Simulated scan of single mutants.
Amino acid sequence: MKNKMTLWILVVLLLLVLAFMAKDLFLSKNAHVENVYEYDLKELRKVDSLKISHKEVKQIKIQADEIHGIAVDLNDQIYVTTNESVLVLNSNGEKVNYLKVRGVARCITVAENGNILIGLGNRVDIRKPDGSLRNSFLLPGNKAFITSLAIADDNIFIADAGQKIVHHYNIDGEKIKEIGAKDIKEGIKGFVIPSPFFDLLMGRQGELWVVNPGRHAFEAYNVKGEQISSWQRTSMSIEGFSGCCNPANIAMLSDGSFVTVEKGLERVKIHLPSGDMKSIVAAPELFEEGTIGIDLAVDSNDRILVLDPVKKMIRIFEAK
C-alpha cells in the first residue's frame, strides 16, 4: 500500500512539472520574442561618444535615381557614379562635368594623370580627363561583376565579386594575371564573397590592399601577385567586423590608416595599418537603418567623404 501511495505521489509531481513546462513554453507572453542565442543589434548600434573622432561638416545632395560609387582626384574633384552617369563636382559640391555612361556605373577610381576608370557590370571604361572615351574592355566569364577598381601607373586591378578574384590588366585592356586565388602551398585561403561587396585600393608603398569580406580580413599583395601581409578582425564588438561579409567598402588616410564602412551595422570607423581600431567616424544613428552600399573616399586634407545612397548625398567628415 505504501509503495502504491509513493507511486501516485510521483505521478502527480511529474504531471505538475509537465504543466509548468507547458505553461512556460506555450503560454508565456514573451516566449516568442526571447532568444538567448540572438545578439541584439540595437545594443550593437550604440556607440561611446568618446570614441567618435570626427564631425560632419558638409552635405552635398545628389540629384539621381541611384548613386553607387565615389572617388576623389588629386585636385579634390569629386566623382559620383549613378545608374546612368558620372557626376564630376568641385570640392564645394558644384557640378563641373557630366559623363553619360553605357550602363550602371557601380564603381570608379581616378588615376594620377586624370584618367577615369569606371566599372559597369563586366566592363571597364577608361575615360580621358576631359571625359572622352579612351578605351574599353570586357572581363571574360558569365559571372563577372566588377565592384572596385584601383590603378598604379599602367596597372589596373579589378575586384570581380562574381568570380571571387582580382584581375590584373594593363591600361590597354590586356590581361596580365589573376590575384588571390586559393593556393594552399602559398598559404592563400582565397576570397570568400557571399554578397557583391568586394573592395580594393592601392597602399602608400605601391602595394595592393584587398578586402576578404567573408573572412573580415585585409590582404596585401605586391605587383607580382604575391601576398605580403594580412590582418583579420572578426568580432561582435566595435573593434572588429561581424556579419556575413564586412567591411563593405574602404578608403585610406594619408598615414596609411584604413577607413571602413559596414553593412548590417552602418558605421564608419578608422583602423590603424596594424588592423587595430583607432576611432569611430560616424555612428549608425546617422544613417537610415538597413542602408546598404555606403561608399567612401578621402581627399587631400584627409576629409572623409561618405556616399549615402539612401539619403542621396555626400556627407563630409573632418577630424574634431
Rank of each mutant, 00 (worst) to 15 (best):
K4H: 09
W8I: 15
L13C: 14
A19N: 09
M21I: 15
A22V: 10
A31C: 01
A31Q: 13
V33T: 13
E34L: 14
N35A: 06
E38K: 14
Y39P: 14
L41Q: 08
K42L: 14
V47Q: 10
D48I: 09
K51Y: 12
I52S: 03
K55L: 02
V57R: 07
K58R: 15
I60C: 04
Q63E: 15
I67F: 03
H68Q: 01
A71C: 10
L74I: 13
Q77H: 11
Y79E: 07
N83K: 05
E84M: 00
L87H: 06
V88E: 10
L89M: 12
N92E: 15
E94T: 15
K95T: 11
L99D: 04
R102S: 15
A105R: 02
A105N: 06
R106V: 05
A111V: 00
N113S: 09
G114Y: 02
G121S: 11
G121T: 00
V124Y: 01
I126K: 05
R127F: 11
K128G: 03
P129E: 02
L138Y: 15
L139H: 06
L139I: 05
N142C: 00
K143N: 10
I146F: 01
T147Y: 06
I151Q: 10
I151G: 01
N155A: 13
D160K: 02
A161M: 00
K164M: 13
V166M: 07
H168S: 09
H168E: 11
K175S: 10
K177N: 11
I179C: 04
K182N: 06
I184R: 02
K185G: 03
E186G: 04
P194D: 01
S195K: 12
P196Y: 04
D199G: 08
G203F: 06
L208P: 05
V210S: 03
G214L: 08
R215Q: 12
K224E: 13
Q227H: 01
I228A: 01
Q232S: 12
R233H: 08
M236L: 13
M236K: 01
C245K: 05
C245P: 03
N246P: 11
N249I: 00
N249E: 13
L265P: 02
V268A: 07
K269T: 10
H271M: 07
P273W: 07
G275K: 03
M277W: 03
I280G: 01
P284Y: 08
E285C: 01
G290L: 08
L296R: 09
V298C: 06
M313D: 13
E318W: 04
A319R: 15
